[in-house]
Amino acid sequence: MDVCVYGCAGCGAELTAPVARVPLPPETHLTYGHGWLPPLMEPGTYAVDPEPSGPPYGAFEDLSEAEAEARGLFAPVWPLSFGKSGRIVVAPGDSRGTVLIPEHGGDSCRGVCAGALPTMACAACGLLVASRVDDCGLWQAVWYEPDAVRRMPATAPAPARPSGPVPPVLPDGWWNPRLEAAAGAALAPLLRASGGGPVALPDGAVGDVFGRALRRLLPAGGPAKRAGLAGPGLPGDGLDIALVPYDPATCEPWRPPGGPATVPLPASVWAYLAGPAETSPVPASGTLPHGVLRDDYPLPDHPWELFRPDRRATLRTLARMPEVRLPWLRALYERC
């Protein structure tokens, strides 16, 4: 597991707690509503954004076709960052030894957002090293500038990361945006792997999450490719398309045997999809038939509306696939 601390490139002071690398969450650059969001990253973790991120922003039309392809963009995207690539993101609680400079922030509302200059300086030498983000609608995070910090050996292990499925429904009755974003990002490779034909999904959570979108976007009838879950404990035998988790140790998608097309998911989202259906916490007794649930316990949270993958995550992911230039997939991109 890749565990390190990040230190100031100017004086070497430690600027983070020990952190372990994880994949960049699919919801990273998506905004939600006008309230405060929780931290983007779990404690003790960090991720690296391989693409340009943060200000300044520009128009996709400012790029030539060759420049867009060099950046891995094959369809229009908005907003388009012309900032630095390789920024490192951690939870705010894992930041160390910095001083906030709020006047460097951008046009924020009820918090702080990134501006033209980093909003955090090294407390030891004053080098501008990072930007704090906690404005309404934005995931709380600290983004370190890749040229202002350097990796250093960790003197202690990173804290144990929480494991288990993502809670699908929030206490207020709305779907968890982390699940919506992950499903939206996964929908793009699902569409690519479909080849433009129908896809057969298993019953249960997988069908609930992806079924409506695939029925709207893909034709019905004819031979269908079989999609389902594969991963630890689920070999995925006979699948044409495998929904797989990221390996927490390598940050690479799990590779099932047989070579089906793979659709990666955050481990917590995959765990939710692979979990058992609703079961009674109280053993049924007496003459209740098998499969009948007792009704004398509180039901789990149910959302206000049917599930929809986040369209923005689908578009962001499709735009970065060379296959989006195929006429049938570009037509789906335009429909989304």
Rank of each mutant, 00 (worst) to 15 (best):
P177V: 11
P177H: 07
R178A: 08
L179D: 00
E180W: 00
A181Y: 03
A182D: 06
A182V: 09
A183T: 11
G184E: 01
A185Y: 05
A185I: 05
L187E: 03
L187W: 05
A188R: 04
P189S: 04
P189N: 07
L190T: 09
L190A: 01
L191V: 12
R192V: 04
A193H: 13
S194E: 08
S194M: 11
G195I: 09
G197Q: 07
P198C: 04
P198A: 15
A200T: 11
L201F: 05
P202M: 09
P202Q: 09
P202L: 07
D203C: 01
G204H: 10
A205D: 02
A205T: 05
G207C: 12
D208A: 15
F210I: 01
R212N: 02
R212P: 00
R212Q: 02
L218E: 01
P219G: 00
A220D: 12
A220H: 08
G222C: 03
K225I: 00
K225L: 14
A227R: 02
G228A: 09
A230L: 12
A230R: 09
P232A: 14
L234P: 05
P235D: 13
G236V: 11
G238Q: 14
L239Y: 10
L239S: 04
L239E: 02
L239R: 00
D240Y: 10
I241Q: 01
I241L: 09
A242V: 07
A242N: 10
A242L: 10
L243M: 14
V244I: 13
P245R: 10
Y246E: 02
Y246Q: 00
P248A: 11
A249Q: 14
C251E: 07
E252M: 14
E252P: 07
P253E: 05
W254F: 15
P256Q: 06
P257C: 07
P257M: 13
G258H: 12
G258A: 11
G258V: 08
G259F: 13
A261M: 12
A261Q: 11
T262M: 06
V263E: 03
V263G: 02
V263Q: 00
P264K: 06
L265R: 01
P266Q: 05
P266N: 08
P266V: 10
A267H: 08
A267N: 04
A267Y: 02
A267F: 00
V269Q: 08
W270R: 00
W270Y: 06
W270G: 00
A271E: 15
Y272V: 05
Y272L: 12
L273K: 06
G275H: 08
P276G: 15
P276E: 14
P276H: 12
A277Q: 15
E278Q: 14
E278S: 03
E278T: 14
E278A: 13
S280F: 07
S280M: 00
V282K: 14
V282N: 00
P283R: 12
A284V: 13
A284I: 10
G286P: 05
T287H: 14
L288D: 13
H290V: 15
G291D: 07
V292G: 04
V292S: 09
L293Y: 06
L293E: 04
R294D: 06
D295Q: 15
D295K: 15
L299M: 04
L299D: 09
P300L: 13
P300H: 08
P303W: 07
W304A: 13
F307S: 06
F307H: 10
R308E: 15
R308C: 08
D310E: 15
R311M: 02
R311Q: 07
R312M: 08
